[in-house]
Amino acid sequence: MTSINQVQEEIKDEFEILGSDRESTIYYIMELGNGLPPFPEEARTDDHIIKGCQSKVWLEAKEEEGKIVFLADSNTDITKGLISLLIRILSGRTPDEILQAELYFIEQIGMGNIIGSQRSNGLASMIKQMKLYALAFQSKLNA
């Protein structure tokens, strides 16, 4: 399996090809969201919600053989695209890997300028929540 940083480099390359046109970058992010696997309806509960001002994210995590698999959905397509990037990087990793991950691609792509401050805050909340899941699973696995 490719490492977390290898995946980040791949993503950086993809965004580099898009160039500086914000419109096509946003369309691309929306398209990425369509690639998310379907979210299990039974997990669409309030305790899985990360609430932003305008968009909602549902995030569910399960452990499979010491690794964490993330599932997510959102009511907005751009947010779906963003979380799909995080899932591509973090899903299927061990709790340690997730906790140690430094998601530098966000700054290096200049994601803040692409998605604006509201959604950047949302993105930060998603990462925080994914790390919290990792922390919870880590203490469970070590118990």
């Binding site: 001002c53 305008q54 968009s55 751009i78």
Partner: peptide
């Protein structure tokens, strides 16, 4: 489509609207 997405895409094409 979510209004927030529409607003962001309009912004990307230089058009300022409000969403929400």
């Amino acid at each position: 489509m979510h209004p927030f997405d529409v607003g962001m895409m309009l912004d990307a094409s230089g058009i300022a609207v409000r969403t929400g």
